[in-house]
Design a protein around this nucleic acid. Structure first.
Lengths: 121, 121
DNA sequence: CCGGATCCTCTGCGATACTG
DNA sequence: CAGTATCGCAGAGGATCCGG
């Protein structure tokens, strides 16, 4: 393995704290766009600094799109998954399947689609 | 999302530096068992402390099995993927597929099976 | 008010040296 | 050979502050 390895490079920016829960949170629910404060409240325990950093990283890698409505008051910012970010959900689902089979038993979670889950799962 | 969420818990112990490359390295090649020094040399840049920590974490979560041959000299330790660890490879492959489609173009890597790759990929 | 930036503290990581 | 010990620094956690 060297620094050019696809998996190495990918795990390097995906395998950071809060990145995967953040992508999942942007996928969840009916609306496609979510505000900073909504994300902060949903990702219970994340600090504003980390949320800000992760959103920037994901935007840089084109998994997340940011829209700022500066003409409104108060200012409203909306974040959403790009096609690339949405495609990443299949990786997350693969991880979930593995975890439910090999790590954590959770019947509720197994039945639930993450998209509709309030995450008692 | 709360602290009980399957994805949150999984990403918490999978999403640490070197964890995924380490699992991939244990998967690669013909032999199933690998020694500490072999892993250290293959994972170019990892420090002995981190390798030791990650192996312990993965053993704790039953993705990796450790065998110590204390009766020999020098002492020989061998690490291998458990069934659970081997099953995790499909998550890694899912990640690789996504990365090659959406992040990094790499024709060589696309053709290559990681198992046989010296990781010029 | 909302979306951050800033400051400080503390854990985690990198590098090197050393031991059973 | 297979790891610990030690130290310094970068990144994460927590609280507060600020511009629009």
């Amino acid at each position: 393995m060297n620094a050019n390895c696809t998996i190495y490079k990918t795990s390097d920016f995906i395998g950071k704290k809060w990145t995967i829960p953040l992508i999942l949170e942007l996928y969840k629910g009916k609306g496609k766009k979510k505000r900073y404060s909504v994300l902060k409240n949903s990702l219970h325990g994340i600090t504003p600094k980390l949320l800000s950093m992760r959103l920037k990283e994901l935007a840089k890698h084109k998994l997340v799109k940011k829209e700022t409505h500066a003409n409104e008051f108060p200012i409203r910012c909306e974040y959403s998954l790009t096609k690339s970010g949405l495609a990443f959900i299949k990786v997350v689902k693969s991880m979930k399947d593995w975890a439910l089979t090999h790590q954590f038993k959770n019947e509720h979670c197994k039945k639930m689609n993450c998209k509709n889950c309030d995450c008692g799962c």
